[in-house]
Amino acid sequence: MSREISTVADGFSFLECPRWHDGKLWVSDFYTGRVVATDGRREPAVLAEIPGQPAGLGFLPDGRALIASMRDKRLLVRDEEGRLSEHADLSRVAPGLLNDMLVDQRGRAYVGNFGFDLMAGAPIRSTGLVRVDPDGSVAVVAEDLRFPNGMVLLPGGVLVVAETFAGRLTAFDVGEDGSLHGRRVWAAFGEAPDTDDVERALGALAVGPDGLCADAEGAIWVADALNARVLRVREGGEIADEIPTGLGVFACMLGGADGRTLFLCTAPSFAEHERRPVREAELRAVRVEVPHAGLP
């Protein structure tokens, strides 16, 4: 079906990790170092400034925000007055820049990292997921992931993570203690590239899964970072819907009053040297039929 995509706000550097919370969409703007929020009607408000570059966002049970500071590999907590403090230091367990994050109902944060220097074109290296518990303690809970990116927690306690450079979504069962087990492929978009060269891998991928969100039918919306589209994917890999986005899209989030607005983080490209000096990124939105479910 034909859908109208609207621009909610523009003038950003590179938007990532959108989260619908308490009537507003929170989102990180990488190269301005800002976390902003909008209800879709007013100009975005700046809620935090993160010199280490903001990435993953989430919320503790008491409503405080967690913010992944990419470059210094710290997890920060923002209180109701907007003050920031350190929640956890991940520098010993994260070999690459911090990336996306999922915070569960108990306040446990699952944090990914690049694993290698993507922007410098370094060889691809697998990395892991780190769990940060509410008391700030840190544990590696999954390894051998090819660029862990967006995550969702489906009803029933299944965590699904996008492995961007493997072209797949990988699932884990979440234990009562927050451990991850039962690893399996939730959806694959072709064979994983058998190379550690970034350019060759990008050329071999049919889909570059980036940010994720889930809906009430158990499907997952996937931002395809390589093909300027979002895909609605069912377990097993069936593509149930596809929406071209006009610009590259790197993250998505269902929100709005009824959970049926799909917000899109768009930009012409993802390369840092292209995005940092300009303000061409846009927050866009499109209406869909099935509302949000699960986390984030």
Score class of each variant (00 low, 15 high):
G112A: 08
T38M: 06
A225V: 00
I50V: 12
F116E: 03
D224Y: 00
F189E: 00
S269W: 00
E4I: 06
L90E: 11
A45P: 02
M70P: 06
E280I: 00
R74K: 15
L262M: 10
R287N: 02
F59Y: 12
R34D: 00
E199C: 03
V35I: 01
Y31W: 14
L254I: 11
R41E: 14
D10K: 15
C252Q: 05
G58V: 07
P134C: 03
T195H: 05
A251F: 07
R146Q: 13
P51Q: 08
L98R: 01
L283Y: 10
V290N: 02
L262Q: 07
A88N: 07
M253V: 09
A187Y: 08
T195E: 06
L90I: 09
A122V: 07
E4C: 05
T7C: 13
E143C: 01
L262A: 11
W221Y: 13
A88K: 04
G156T: 14
A122P: 03
G107H: 14
V138E: 04
S69D: 10
I239E: 04
A9N: 11
L254V: 10
D22W: 00
I124G: 01
L15C: 04
I220D: 10
V93A: 11
A88C: 03
K24S: 14
V130A: 15
D144C: 04
E49A: 02
G175Y: 15
S6Y: 05
F12N: 05
D241F: 08
D104V: 09
A216I: 06
G190R: 04
G82L: 09
G150R: 03
F172H: 14
A267I: 04
L66I: 05
V138M: 09
A267R: 00
W186H: 07
L180E: 13
A94V: 10
T32M: 06
R287M: 09
N149C: 08
G246T: 02
V174Q: 09
A142P: 13
V27W: 05
R287I: 01
F12E: 04
L145A: 01
L231A: 02
G107R: 09
L76S: 00
H87C: 09
P296R: 14
G82D: 09
I5Q: 11
G33I: 05
H292K: 14
L180P: 01
G115E: 12
E4F: 05
S137Q: 07
L25R: 11
S269D: 15
A216N: 06
S2L: 07
T127S: 11
G203T: 06
D210H: 02
A267W: 10
N113R: 01
V140D: 12
H181R: 13
D241T: 04
W221I: 07
S13P: 02
V141A: 06
K24N: 13
H292W: 15
A166C: 04
R19P: 06
A48F: 00
M101R: 08
A240D: 12
W221L: 09
R146F: 11
A94Q: 07
R287T: 11
A192F: 01
G107I: 14
D39F: 13
D10A: 15
A68Q: 13
V111I: 14
V111D: 03
